[in-house]
Amino acid sequence: MKEQIGIERLTGLLAFAKAGSLGSYTAAAQALSVSPSAVSKSIQRLEKHLGLKLFSRTTRSLSLTAEGRDLHARAIRLLRDAAEIEQAAFASRAEPAGTIKVTAPLPIGVNVLAPALPRFRARYPKLAVDLRLTDRLVDIIDEGIDVAIRVGDVVDSRLIARPLAPHKLCAFASPSYLAARGIPLHPRELAGHDCVNFRYQSSGQTLRWPFNVGGRILEITPEARVVVDVSDAVVAVLAAGGGIGISATYVAAPFVKRGELIPLLTDFAVDRFDITALWPESRRGNPNVKAFTTFLGEIFPSPAPWDTLIAENATD
């Protein structure tokens, strides 16, 4: 007769599957909504029961042992089966409730999603939102994310994708800077201006400024007097008179509305990518996901209000 698996051992297998996929007890703990020490203890108990060392640990890294790699694929199947059971239970429930895990890039989360969450919570008081803002490319399936917002083209057969709005980039500067230095009417005139640029935290590369010139995309990397690695900091520097910079329109729009920034070179502005909502195929019938993705359609209307505001306040 086969020995029945206990709750403690099952918990250890789930913790092992997450930690093996994410390469970190801390990341696994966040995905499972428990403490890192709980993950560590569960895996230690599992290793003791199996008589195997599943991970090689140092102060800086966590990697699967040869025995751990052999067992990890089976543990992942267990994790996915558990997720499917949970989703089937959610789908049978009509009213959204529990917790929905959402991930998004920091600028979209801060400027679009976060201000709208109180309205969403008022509509669905039994549904809590766990919003995770990061520029890291999150593995939606392995990290148990319900809905992800991303910028750019995404191809993954495991995911359902819905375009939300164009990701329009435009140049901006403050009225005081333009009064002192003049208004550029063509991208080539930026060479005579102080420029503020953005650096990607993930790669360390600075943003190449795209402009649509004569139907072709021209990319330039201006000589920047200030470089920062957070999008909202770029517009803060610009609003303080720091020069000319490129920003997504949804980040700059509040500054434009208050008269602190003026859109520039709008005839050359580029819709570089789409902002897209993604969720796992397994959550197609999940009422929480249905409620949130429907709400996303409301806060990303077409045309986007921030793009309309920019067009109304353009200098050219």
Rank of each mutant, 00 (worst) to 15 (best):
I217H: 05
I217M: 09
I217A: 06
I217V: 12
L218M: 10
L218E: 14
E219M: 11
E219H: 07
I220D: 00
T221K: 01
P222L: 09
P222T: 06
P222Q: 08
E223N: 09
E223A: 08
E223K: 08
A224P: 15
A224H: 05
R225K: 03
R225C: 03
R225D: 12
V226H: 05
V226I: 04
V228D: 05
V228T: 09
V228S: 05
D229C: 06
D229M: 13
D229W: 12
D229P: 13
V230Y: 09
S231Y: 11
A233T: 06
V234D: 02
V234C: 02
V235G: 04
V235M: 03
V235A: 02
A236M: 04
A236H: 07
A236V: 01
A236L: 03
A236T: 07
V237Y: 08
V237L: 06
V237I: 06
V237E: 12
L238F: 04
L238V: 02
L238K: 03
L238P: 14
L238H: 06
A239Y: 09
A239M: 08
A239W: 10
A239R: 08
A240Y: 06
G241C: 09
G241V: 07
I244T: 03
G245F: 01
G245L: 02
G245I: 00
G245T: 01
I246N: 07
I246A: 10
S247C: 11
S247H: 03
S247W: 04
S247Y: 06
A248C: 13
A248W: 10
T249D: 14
Y250N: 02
Y250K: 01
Y250T: 02
Y250M: 04
Y250Q: 04
V251L: 09
V251W: 08
V251Y: 06
A252Q: 06
A253C: 10
A253E: 11
A253P: 05
P254S: 11
F255T: 05
F255M: 15
V256L: 11
V256Q: 10
V256I: 08
R258N: 15
R258W: 10
R258V: 06
G259D: 15
G259H: 13
E260F: 01
E260A: 12
E260M: 12
L261W: 07
L261K: 09
I262N: 12
I262S: 13
P263V: 01
P263E: 15
L264G: 00
T266D: 14
T266F: 13
D267Y: 12
D267P: 14
F268N: 11
F268T: 01
A269C: 06
A269F: 00
V270E: 00
V270R: 00
D271E: 14
R272K: 12
R272T: 13
R272S: 15
R272G: 14
F273K: 14
F273A: 14
D274R: 08
D274I: 03
I275D: 01
T276A: 07
